[in-house]
Every structure is written in structure tokens, then in C-alpha cells.
Design a protein around this nucleic acid. Structure first.
Lengths: 319, 319
DNA sequence: AGTTCGATATGAGATGGATTCATGAATTTG
DNA sequence: CAAATTCATGAATCCATCTCATATCGAACT
């Protein structure tokens, strides 16, 4: 391969490697195997006659050449995306309506900023966020009272298609000085004898209970709180334990307000998906919304990982 | 193919089609077959769901979508080139020396502007233009008194490698009101009875004599002039005919100062190549000089065409 | 030091996209 | 209208890329 045969694929590869901090993680994001990423990176380095990544360090670092090429990626790839968006507008028009229903309380954390970014590039799309807890958000889609739903439930329904967003880790929260904080991770039995502090939703919507405690036959008393800060406050003041997505609790952990531990050896991983009516899935402004959310999330949320399309994960690590 | 699988290859394709004004001409520039260009363009249009070129018009026009994508190409491709140049500097260093010997008088027309552009991106390379007419410029290369030669002679010499620049048409010049000006093109016999006005170089360096008149057994009297303007003036004042590269005479033809006609049915085409020592061919600043000259020439010179690597053309159209 | 685990490298083979070849249709030119 | 030029298209070929299987490497743990 000749250096002048460099392609956008290579820039996307380098960007993924840099953001993910490793070839294996990059491969997952790109929906390739680790082998493909390794081969392709090597081919690129051979073509340029320069090493691009420092393989010794962890997380993987870039060489000076790698950083120069990454700078190209950072400047060129957004231009390409913008052009493709303009072409999509040329094809499908640039107006539309997107009424969004959200199933999970903590999703607003990343959804609002993502919506702000989306508004910048699709000013013609009317964005609405449906408030309140929805018992059956997919029903809203079918009734045409919503256009897009963010959910963890991907049970097939006629006329509905799902697109995976990301997998995220639910972390168990406990007071920083709690005896269990010395443990590397918590086991179901550790929850016995503690109050579980949750949002006010049915038990079968709580992954910790449905997938960890109930199978182990453990039924701790529950206490409900509406707001995330309230839950954190209750945990910090030793009223009980809780489990929240990693991205929600990261800032509090950093400040030492609460401690967080994985649930089980590999952690408790859940997923988020987007559901839309099949008829809407091809619309450019819909597809780009999903894209924007995904890109934005991976750029900013800690403790999330890519999903292989169509895989419902349980407790095991991806793959 | 999905729109997001667009590659730089597609941008280069669209740019070539737009600049060349047709798929066939674009194919030659890209060193591909016309079929490949057609297939690839169609695949791209299918992926985007949009037509990019107006196939009806001649020269081929772009649609609104095509223009948007071309705008991307114009902004992204130079960034890529700049990055690759930086990487080459990182690998090979950014300094060097380039003493250039030129065989043809009219080459300065395009060489000087190209050198100016080159200086902008390789400020560390010392550029020198060797003056005067060189009898054996390749000898200068071997003696290390020059580093790069622009020549039409590609006779293999050990330690020397050639890179094709472009093919160009030699146009016969005559006074605008000359009887021969009514002809679509001139034949060897038409030169009989006219004085031939040339630069002061040996006969075997004049393509018109060596390849057209001598084979036809025609030996018109010669008159020599040092400067291009002097030759033009002599032709305009009816002292004889001349033959010069199309790019040199284009501005004078436009003003009606002289008339120009092809020599023979398909015109008299000559070629220019770059010769360097084999040891220098891989140096980044050398390769990029050749690249810059080529790019610059195709962007600005009228009546030139790409060369297939390693083909010595005669009188027939390319391919 | 040995073992295990996670990550990267590598060779062989499969796959699919890109290219060429051969040809046809459409359009222009003299 | 014949000749030439250009673009389109289907089939065959080729080659780059990907996956699979496995090797290698290094770090963490015991």
C-alpha cells in the first residue's frame, strides 16, 4: 500500500484506537474483530513507514506521527459527517418532528446535552421530550403519540425496530466508610440486611432485583426516592444501598461522597436501545439522531461499552 | 454500500470527474479504466440515493448534491495531502537540495509557478534552477551537478529513474490570415516552401522535424530565435511557421496574434518526464516535487493529457 | 518463579468489493 | 448516415480486507 492510498477508514480506525485506548476496545466500537484492527493498523503503519501507536503503554499512546494523523482525523471526519448530513437533507428534506419518550430516570443526564448538539445541525426538526414515567412507552410509538423511545426492552413488536445505543454498568453504591467498601466487588448476599434505595418503579424494572437479587432469593426492604440526589444522600447517610449507572455516579465518587463497587465478578451490565416505528427508521433526521446520541455518549460517558447489534447481554463480559 | 462508508477514493473520483469534465478523461487521470469510474460513480450515487453528475451535458455537469460533495473534496483532500506531507517530513526530514535542469525552453512557463507553490510547503528544501541549454542533462544527474531533470528523453540509463509528467500537444503556428489557417489541421507537405522558426537547438531535438517533416522527406529552411516572443513575432510578421506547446501559445491565440493548428489528424503529441537518480527517487521532498508539478500542471495548462506510466507515445491518441 | 488473564500479533483461508474485459446503447460529428 | 466518442452494464477476475485460530507478550497475582 502506498501512503497516498490512505482512506477515511484509516482515520476512523486511528480515532477509535485513540478514544478507546486500545485495539480490542476500538475493534468493538468499529464492529470489527481485534484481528482486523491489528492488521489494518499494521498495514497503515507499513504504508507510511512510521509507527503510529506506542504499543508498550497502557492505555495505548500515540506517537508524534499518530498524533499528526489524529489531528487530520479530528478535522476531516466532522467535515465528512457534515457533508453527508447535508446530502441527506437534500434527499429527504430537513424538517421533521421527534417526540421522545424515555424509560430510564438517569437518561436525561446524557440525553439533554445530546439533544442540544442535535438541534445545532437539524434546526428544522421539532424536538419534544415527553415527561413523566411511561408504563408502556412502545405503546406510545404505536399510537403515534411519540416518535422515538429510549428503552432497555427490545422485545420484538410488529412495526417497531430497535437500534442498540450502548451497554452500561450499574454500580452498587455504599457509604465510603462502609465495611463492604473494602471488597473489590459485591455479591448478592451482601445486599441482605440492607435497605435498597430505588426510583419509584415496579420491581421488574430494576435490573439489580430482577437479575441479581431475585434469582439469589434475596428480598431486601425497599425505600423509594424520586431524585438521583435524594438517593445518593440516603446512601451517604447510611440509610441503605443503591445501584445506579456508572455515568450518573461518577462525579459523586470522584468527590468521595459515596463509594461504588461492581455487582458480581464482571459487574452488572444493562443496555439501552432506541425504538422507532419501522416506517421512520430510514428518515435521515431520525437515523442521525441515533447517531448523534451514540457518538456523544461514547465521547463523554464513563463505563459504557458498544453493543453488538441484536445481542441481549446478561452478566458476562461482552462476547 | 452505506453512505457512511464513503471514502477518500470517492472524493478523489468526483474531483477528477469534475476537473476532467467527463468519466473517460477522469479515468485516465486516475489511471483506471472508464468502466471502473462508471461503476464506482454509480455505486456512490446508489449509496447516497442521489445523482451526482448530469450525464446529459457536455462537459459533464454536477448536480447540487455533486457540488456539495465536491466542496467537501476541495476542503478535505488538501488537508489529507498536508498531513501526509507532514508525516513524510517526520520520516525523512524536511530539508534537502533540488538543483533542477530543464531541457525545454517553454517549460519555465509552468515550472516557475509550480516551484513557488512547492516552496510554500517545503521551505527547508533549497531550490536551484540550472540556467542555459544543457546538451546532456542526464549526465548532470550522474555527475551530481543536478538532482532533477525535466526531459522528453526516457532512454534507460543505469541509476536513473523516470516519472511521467504529462503529454502535451505541439501546435503549428501561422499568421491568422494565412491561407493554411482555413485548414482543420496541417500536413507535412504544408510546411514545404515555408521557413521554420525554432529555438536554437539541434534538429534531432525538434519533434516537428524529427517525427513529422524528416520522415516525410521535407527539409524546410530554418531560422532560429532565442525567445518565445521573438518566434511569435516572426510568425505574425509572415517570416515563417513554427511549432510550440499548446500552453505556451494559448494566450497569443486568444488575442488573435497568431493562429494555431494541430499537426496531422491527431495532432503532434510529445511528453515530458522527470528524471532523478534512483537513490533520490524515494525521498519525500523529491516525490512531492514531482507530485506538485503534475497537480499544478493539470490544474492550469491547456492541451495536456495524462501519460500511462512507461508508454512512449507517438502520433496516435492515448490508448 | 509459575500461573492466569488480558491484550496484541500473525498466518491461512474465506469473503466481498473493486477493477477489468467485452460489449451494447446513446450521442455527437463530419 | 457512417464513424467516432462517450457512458453503461454484466460477467469474470483480482485483490484488499476480514475472520478464525493460534501464538506471543506482558502484567498481576499467588
Amino acid at each position: 500500500m502506498n501512503p497516498s492510498h490512505i482512506e477515511l477508514r484509516h482515520l476512523r480506525l486511528l480515532q477509535a484506537v485513540s478514544e478507546a485506548g486500545g485495539l480490542t476496545a476500538a475493534a468493538e466500537r468499529l464492529h470489527l474483530t481485534q484481528s482486523a484492527v491489528s492488521h489494518q493498523l499494521k498495514a497503515l503503519e507499513d504504508a507510511l513507514g512510521l509507527a503510529l501507536v506506542e504499543r508498550a503503554a497502557r492505555p495505548l499512546g500515540l506517537t508524534a506521527a499518530g498524533r499528526r494523523l489524529l489531528a487530520l482525523a479530528h478535522s476531516a471526519l466532522p467535515q465528512v459527517d457534515a457533508a453527508l448530513r447535508d446530502l441527506a437533507k437534500l434527499r429527504d428534506g430537513d424538517a421533521g418532528e421527534l417526540r421522545i419518550a424515555v424509560e430510564c430516570h438517569t437518561c436525561y443526564d446524557w440525553l439533554m446535552p445530546a439533544m442540544d448538539r442535535y438541534r445545532d445541525v437539524w434546526p428544522g426538526v421539532e424536538l419534544d421530550l415527553l415527561g413523566g414515567f411511561q408504563a408502556d412507552p412502545i405503546g406510545l410509538l404505536l399510537d403515534k403519540r411519540a416518535d422515538l423511545v429510549i428503552t432497555s426492552d427490545t422485545a420484538p413488536r410488529p412495526g417497531i425496530v430497535y437500534a442498540p445505543l450502548f451497554g452500561f454498568e450499574m454500580l452498587a453504591l455504599l457509604p465510603p466508610d462502609h465495611p463492604l467498601a473494602s471488597r473489590k466487588w459485591l455479591l448478592p448476599a451482601d445486599f441482605a440486611g440492607h435497605t435498597l434505595i430505588t426510583y419509584p418503579v415496579p420491581e421488574d424494572r430494576l435490573d439489580l432485583i430482577r437479575r441479581v437479587l431475585a434469582p439469589a432469593g434475596i428480598k431486601p426492604p425497599r425505600r423509594e426516592a424520586q431524585l438521583t440526589v435524594a438517593i445518593l444522600q440516603l446512601v451517604a447517610s447510611r440509610r441503605g444501598l443503591a445501584a445506579l449507572p456508572a455515568w450518573t455516579v461518577a462525579p459523586y465518587i470522584e468527590r468521595g461522597y459515596v463509594a461504588a463497587r461492581p455487582v458480581g465478578r464482571h459487574g452488572l451490565w444493562a443496555e439501552l436501545h432506541v425504538a422507532v416505528r419501522a416506517a421512520d427508521a430510514a428518515r435521515a433526521y431520525v437515523a442521525d439522531f441515533i447517531d448523534t446520541v451514540k457518538r456523544d455518549s461514547f465521547a463523554r460517558l464513563p463505563g459504557i461499552r458498544p453493543l453488538v447489534a441484536g445481542t441481549m447481554e446478561t452478566n458476562a463480559p461482552a462476547r
